[in-house]
C-alpha cells in the first residue's frame, strides 16, 4: 500500500501517534506525555494537533449539523426523529416551520416522513434537540434516501462542496447530504441511479486520491453507456 502513494498509513487503537509537544485531537488520547490512537483510522497532523480520521463508526450528533431524519413517533407537541445516531432526537413543534396547534402534529409530519433538519443542541448527557428553523430545512417528498457510513460524509461533500456539486451538475439531481450519513436524491430514475452509483464509488474509494476525477469519469462513461438497470 505504501508503494502506491495514494494512501496514508492506517493506525490501530493503541498505536503511538505522537510524542510530547503535540496536542491530542479527535480520535486520540494522551497518556504519560505520549499520544495514542483511540480509533481505527488515518493519522492526521495539523499545527501540532494530532487527530485520527476514523474509517468507521457511528454518527454522533453535534450542534449545527445538517441531518436527514425519519419521523418515528409523534407526540402532541413534538415528533421523535431517527437521525441514525445512538440517541433519539425530538423535534419540538415550536422548532418546526409551521404554526402547530397542540395535538395537531400529525397534520404536518407523520410517522415515516423524511425531513431535512439541523441539530439545535446536544447536552452533556447527549440529549439531542432538532430544529427546522434553518433555511434549507424542509420535509422531503419523493426522491430516494440512501445511507453511507457517516465517516465518509466529508468525502461525499468534498472541499467546499465540490464533490456533491459535481454530481449535481453531471446528473442534474437534487441532492441533500446529511452529516449523519443519509443522502437524499431526487431526479429522474436514470439520474438518481447515476448519482447513487457515484456516491457508492466515493464511499468505496474514500481514501483514494483523484477521487473527484474518478467520479467525473464514472458518471460520464456511464451516461454514454446503456441505461442503468
Amino acid at each position: 500500500m505504501q508503494g502506491s502513494g495514494s494512501l496514508r498509513p492506517i493506525v490501530i487503537p493503541g498505536e503511538a501517534v505522537g510524542g510530547p509537544g503535540l496536542k491530542p485531537g479527535p480520535g486520540t488520547y494522551s497518556e504519560g506525555g505520549q499520544l495514542f490512537a483511540a480509533q481505527l483510522g488515518i493519522r492526521n497532523e495539523h499545527d501540532g494537533l494530532v487527530s485520527v480520521i476514523p474509517l468507521s463508526g457511528r454518527y454522533l450528533p453535534q450542534r449545527g449539523d445538517a441531518v436527514i431524519g425519519e419521523v418515528i413517533d409523534q407526540g402532541p407537541s413534538h415528533w421523535l426523529v431517527d437521525i441514525n445516531s445512538p440517541y433519539p432526537a425530538p423535534l419540538h413543534a415550536t422548532e418546526s416551520p409551521w404554526r402547530v396547534e397542540f395535538g395537531d402534529t400529525a397534520r404536518y409530519l407523520k410517522v415515516g416522513d423524511v425531513i431535512m433538519c439541523h441539530v439545535l443542541s446536544v447536552d452533556e448527557i447527549k440529549r439531542v434537540q432538532l430544529t427546522m428553523q434553518e433555511r434549507e430545512a424542509r420535509k422531503l417528498n419523493g426522491g430516494i434516501l440512501m445511507e453511507v457510513s457517516p465517516t465518509k460524509v466529508p468525502r461525499v461533500i468534498g472541499k467546499q462542496g465540490s464533490m456533491v456539486s459535481l454530481i449535481k451538475d453531471l446528473t442534474r439531481c437534487q441532492i441533500y447530504v446529511g452529516q449523519n450519513g443519509r443522502i437524499w436524491l431526487d431526479g429522474d430514475d436514470r439520474s438518481t441511479a447515476l448519482a447513487s452509483m457515484a456516491i457508492r464509488l466515493i464511499e468505496e474509494r474514500a481514501q483514494a486520491v483523484g477521487l473527484t476525477e474518478a467520479v467525473r469519469e464514472l458518471i460520464e462513461r456511464a451516461a454514454k453507456g446503456p441505461r442503468p438497470s
Binding site: 487503537p13 493503541g14 488520547y29 480509533q39 481505527l40 476514523p54 468507521s56 463508526g57 465517516t151
Partner: peptide, 11 residues
C-alpha cells in the same frame, strides 16, 4: 470492536 470504529485505549 476496532472494525466498528469504537474508540478504545488499545486492542
Amino acid at each position: 470492536l476496532a472494525d466498528a470504529g469504537v474508540p478504545m485505549r488499545d486492542l
